[in-house]
Simulated assay, not measured.
Amino acid sequence: MARVLLIEDDHETAGEIIAELVDRGFEVDRAATGTEGLAMARAGEADVMVVDRLLPGIDGLSIIETVRQDQVRIPVLVLSALGAVDDRVRGLRAGGDDYLTKPFALLELVARIEALLRRPAETRDTVLRVGPLDLDLLARNARREDRAIDLLPREFRLLEYMMRRKDQLLTRAMLFEEVWNYKFVPKSNLVDVHIGRLRRKVDGADEEPLIQSVRGEGFILRAPA
């Protein structure tokens, strides 16, 4: 029997969802505020989460971003009255696995939950590897072969983000949004400064560069050929 964590502040909507899910054999835990929902999500006891985007206290996307940073890999369905393409993209980029716009049919909600539960579980590896570079997410340390790399917290988050997306072009806008949680692109060289510091730590003088700049576009982390 699958267990659903529902984070929804509207009592009527929550009641309808719970009744439908229980009738179909699901166990349902409900949180009515963002703060309560985050605490329950971090416990990691659910098989799937259904999260309203607009919540009192902590908003739904902040909940998702936080649990993803905590390495909680529960699949998440985002509920929202905001149905524009940009809103859906923002929900998925925050770490949501699916997005359903209100109002919705309960049958579709159930079908989407069932589809999320059928997906293969995401890898729970606690060590990321790209070529000679290792990042231990539990011990919070980094190494390039036998050389330890001393990273500040923001540098660690930046390197983790890049290693999870190796060989992908990462624009400054993407890094501002995903690593700094900015919802806009400031007129700042903040990303370039941090990339420069990270590159000096990751790529030694006699080592093949892993972090590469693409002029006018962004940055790529690549393993040596």
Rank of each mutant, 00 (worst) to 15 (best):
L117E: 09
I113T: 04
R140S: 08
R144G: 00
A139P: 07
G131A: 08
R124D: 15
T123R: 01
V110D: 02
P132E: 05
I113D: 11
R119L: 13
D136P: 06
V130W: 13
L135F: 06
R124I: 13
R143E: 01
A115Q: 12
L116C: 06
R118C: 09
T123Y: 00
T123M: 10
P132F: 00
T123S: 14
V110M: 07
A105L: 07
R112S: 07
F104E: 11
A139W: 04
A142I: 01
L106S: 14
R112E: 11
A139Y: 01
T126V: 06
L137V: 05
R140Q: 09
V110S: 10
F104V: 06
R140F: 11
A139K: 12
V127W: 06
R129S: 06
L137M: 08
R140E: 08
T126N: 03
L128E: 09
R118K: 15
P120G: 07
L116W: 09
R143D: 02
D134S: 14
P132K: 04
L135K: 02
D136H: 12
I113L: 15
V127H: 07
L128S: 10
A105S: 13
L133S: 10
L117V: 07
R119W: 01
L106C: 14
D134I: 12
D136F: 14
R118A: 14
R118G: 02
N141F: 10
L137T: 00
L109H: 11
A142E: 02
L107D: 15
L106F: 03
E145W: 02
R118W: 05
R129A: 11
G131M: 04
R119G: 02
L137C: 09
R112M: 10
R112W: 13
E122W: 05
A142G: 06
E145S: 08
L133G: 14
L135D: 01
L117Y: 08
L107Q: 07
R143F: 07
R112A: 07
L116E: 05
R124N: 12
L138G: 00
L137S: 06
P132R: 03
E108H: 06
A142L: 07
A142Q: 02
T123C: 08
A115S: 05
E108F: 03
L116T: 11
L133Y: 05
R124G: 14
L116S: 08
L109V: 08
L116G: 04
E108A: 01
G131H: 11
V110G: 06
G131D: 04
P132I: 08
E108S: 05
A121N: 00
P120R: 14
L109P: 06
A142M: 04
L128W: 04
A111E: 13
A121L: 13
E108N: 03
R118M: 12
R119M: 10
E114M: 06
L107S: 13
L117P: 07
L116I: 02
